[in-house]
Every structure is written in C-alpha cells, then in structure tokens.
C-alpha cells in the first residue's frame, strides 16, 4: 500500500513549490486563478510532447493530482481521439477525457451550495 509515496510526496511537493515561488517572485497580479490556468496549459503542452507520462510513471499521484495532471488528461485525450477519429478528434478528445473531473467538481459545487452556507 505504501509503495511510491515518497516519490509522490516529493514530486507533488516540488510542483507546488514551483507555483509558490512563481507567486512570491512575480508582481502581485499573479493570483490563484492565473496559477491554475498556467498549470493546466503547461501540463497540456508538456504532455503533448510526451514528457509528462514519465513523470507519472515515477511519481504516480504526485504527478496526476496537480493541475498539470489535468492538462495531461486533456492532451492524452485529444491525442487518442485524433488517432481514432482523425480531424473530429481535435475537438472532442480533450473535454471528453476530462469530463469526469469537471462533472464531479461541478456537481459537488451545486450540492454543497444547497447544503452548506459559507461561514466566512
């Protein structure tokens, strides 16, 4: 049960630290929203180049959980869809592959907003 957790901890930690350094050393304008967008886009391109899979092989959840892993899902989705469906796959692959994460998050958002009130 515990195999690979050291790698996950270190790689996951480092990916987060890079963002923290980025926030601290750039002007105030970099907000969490910018960071999330930056990670997804970067993850997509890195994965598109085929460089993200080795990281996942090494670090498991340490590479899939950060939002760059979300980008990886998008990229792999589109690549597979292009293989199967050709041109049409360019437009269906990304979102289809990422649909589970997005759908669950949106669903949880609505459910939580109906159950809980923000505490401040």
């Amino acid at each position: 049960m515990l195999e690979g957790i050291a790698a996950a901890f270190i790689v996951g930690g480092i990916i987060c630290v890079l963002a923290q350094i980025f926030i601290e050393l750039t002007p105030y304008k970099i907000t969490p929203g910018h960071i999330l967008v930056f990670y997804v886009v970067t993850g997509t391109f890195i994965s598109g180049l085929g460089w993200y899979q080795p990281l996942i092989d090494f670090a498991g959840a340490g590479a899939t959980l950060p939002l760059s892993g979300f980008g990886h899902i998008l990229a792999q989705g589109v690549i597979e869809a292009v293989d199967e469906e050709g041109l049409k796959g360019i437009f269906t692959g990304g979102l289809s592959a990422a649909s589970m994460g997005i759908t669950v998050a949106l669903m949880m958002g609505v459910v939580m907003s109906l159950i809980f009130k923000p505490k401040g």
Partner: peptide, 20 residues
C-alpha cells in the same frame, strides 16, 4: 463587514487563498 468586503472585492470566503 469582513465577509461582505471579501466576497465583493476579493475571493469567495471559503476559498483557500494565502494572504500577503
């Protein structure tokens, strides 16, 4: 009011954001 100001000017109050 802290919460009215946060939600209007910054982030939702339950969002985990680090303050500078």
């Amino acid at each position: 009011h802290h919460e009215t100001a946060e939600r209007q000017l910054r982030y939702p109050t339950e969002m985990g954001v680090q303050r500078t």
